[in-house]
Design a protein around this nucleic acid. Sequence first.
DNA 1: CATCCGTTGATTGGATCCAATCTTACGCTA
DNA 2: TAGCGTAAGATTGGATCCAATCAACGGATG
Lengths: 229, 229
Amino acid sequence: MADPASPLDALGPALEGRWRTATEFVEAVLKAAILEGRLPGGTALRQEELAERFGVSRMPVREALRQLEAQALVDMVPHRGAVVTEISAADAADTYAIRRALEPAALRLSIPRLAPAQLDTAAEIILAMDAEPEPGRMGLLNRRFHMALYAAAGHRRLLALTAAQLAACDRYLRFHLAAHGREHLSQQDHRAMLAAARAGDAPRAVAVLEAHLDRAAGAIARFFAARGG
Amino acid sequence: MADPASPLDALGPALEGRWRTATEFVEAVLKAAILEGRLPGGTALRQEELAERFGVSRMPVREALRQLEAQALVDMVPHRGAVVTEISAADAADTYAIRRALEPAALRLSIPRLAPAQLDTAAEIILAMDAEPEPGRMGLLNRRFHMALYAAAGHRRLLALTAAQLAACDRYLRFHLAAHGREHLSQQDHRAMLAAARAGDAPRAVAVLEAHLDRAAGAIARFFAARGG
DNA sequence: CATCCGTTGATTGGATCCAATCTTACGCTA
DNA sequence: TAGCGTAAGATTGGATCCAATCAACGGATG
């Protein structure tokens, strides 16, 4: 049965939850596996193999792969199949350039309208991140923190785009954590952003955010430079 | 046969061209129809009806609808079908907020690396826009002009996102044209941006672009305010 | 008369089957 | 032996069929 050592063994458990459709289910599991790095870039995603693993037919798999392609998580070529998008220094720079454009805009729009409850939520997430040992969940918490600060921006599509780019960065976050260890400085930035947001000081919060993103992008660029040669 | 007066009568001709797959074909035709305003917001997109019109089965239609959903051009609800996304003042503001964030970043990255040939291309597009009477093609030319200026930015995904948002704005461009008539001032902005780009003056080009986008967003907001009450 | 509930029709989600395309391997030829 | 053409297998795209879900309507009941 166990085709020996398929890359898809890393798909992980079925992510307990209620799914409206099989397509949503397959998409969610695949997306989590890609973002958390369990399915590395370049992994071929055969429809039939995935269908068998998920216990569904090939059709929901096909639709899920299309959705992931739209999110730039897999590359599809007609009649040749889907492959997990490769990560690279160029792609990391690309993703961070997008975040660097979107997130300051979202933060500027959001800060004047942030409710105290939303700020408290952000503060709780910071504490949860201090206590989180697992890198996989750390990415989720990091996303949640950033989105909590942007949540009041209105502009649903801007927020959706921002969330998608933040998720894409999760694939690089593990490198960041590996390089800096757990005592990375991000939490200082997060606290500074939260403080500025509480004070209603949008320019300062934006400045911290931009430095935060630049630092992260720089760290990942150095990581690739040191590794890839 | 002719179910009398279906909204899908506006789908238009089959956009001569070679398509790798039926899905791509359906997606391209639907996308063009939505962007050019022939399929207004709220139009229900029944899979079977579309399949019959395109002479394919329901499956490529389903995949195309999924792709369009990812581009925020249609809304899909499980078991209830797809509807062309409604346009609104809020959505217009949202889209322009995204452009306002992305395009200055792309322009800043691109200008130092723009080749003379790319600048010449942009200049030609401006002339073509002067001569273009049809609003549908005007949107395409406008997109091409902007993307020509950003083309040297590198960062494929940033450019892809930017192009998608530019396309989304096409749905509002018709209002802009209707309000300002053909002697709209956009062309002055375009010429100023091109001149600044030629001079390598990124800050000035970005300033013109930002004013350009703000003016367009304002015009559309006023249009909705005057109409919707 | 209003409300609740079951039934019916329409529509989509999913499964299975067939066709088209790509990859690979083999054999032939120069 | 290198290169090319062809044939077999694998894999995806598309069509058709069935099942699940939703909306609407009508009747029973308080």
